[in-house]
Amino acid sequence: MSEQRFPFRRLPDDICLKVLKTTDYCEMAGYSLVSKKAHSMVKSLRVPITRGKILVASSMEIRLITNDLREIDFNFKVPENDGEMTSLNDLPVRVDVSMKKNLTDWRGDKHLYVINQSFDEPSEKDIMYAENVLRVFLPLVETVQLNCVTLRKHFFVQHIGMANLKRLDLKSDHNVKFDDLLTLNVEKLIINKAKNISLRDLNRFFKLWMKGSFPKLKFLYVKEKTRTIPDWNVLLKGLKAKEEEKEMEELEEDEEEEEEEPYVDTERKFKIKNCRGVWAELTIDHYLNHKCLVSLYIFNS
């Protein structure tokens, strides 16, 4: 090792940058973790990151996808005897940086994905990790995807509710109350595998929209499992929704194509209007495999 020592920092700054540009992204990222000066030097290179992903598992992992679709992994090793972490500065006791050449998934066009890969109930430590990551990155991103991430009681309202997001994608509404969603200031809200949101809640949401709430909202999509055929009257109660007529020609064509398995079209579309005169298309559907979905697409005012 001693034979290979090279006084890199004694080189002129422009040469240092030239050398860094020659290194692979993996070494570049590794060098940025060496010191504050090294970090600012790498930052000045302005390497474009298209996507990134933060994994909260037994150790924290951050994956960055560069423009040439190469993936850089940062694996943050937290000390075993002192797992308490109050800020991201506490994280890197040891950092492993590796690079993969295949494409997988995080933050580039300002997307943040927080994914809980564990099937077990997350521990207090896991929840804290996830919240720390969100606290740091929420002010910087436009799109957030929470995949089975459990958050503490007031975190959602205090932090995600305050963030100015373009899109919030909840892969489940785990530990998120519907009242919490009412505080959101997002353009697109997508909830998959909703468990705690009832049709009555959605009816309340749409009534609030009609009264002028959620002026930023452009799209809402909620998908949930149901064992019974949903009573859409509960959802549509008091919305003064006008049902759209389906185009018969399209339906006939579909029937001709699928003669063996008759397609049961359960999708219904309605139009609702809010107090500002903005129209929205409300789509409701019920699948045979016991899933129902409700979406609201708001037309440009």
């Binding site: 020592r5 890199f8 920092r9 590794g30 060496v34 950092v95």
Partner: peptide, 17 residues
């Protein structure tokens, strides 16, 4: 010189304070 090295190894090889 630093290809495939960890941040600590990079620090040592490039003598980064």
């Amino acid at each position: 010189m630093v290809k495939g090295k960890s941040p600590e190894e990079i620090r040592e090889i490039w003598m980064i304070p």
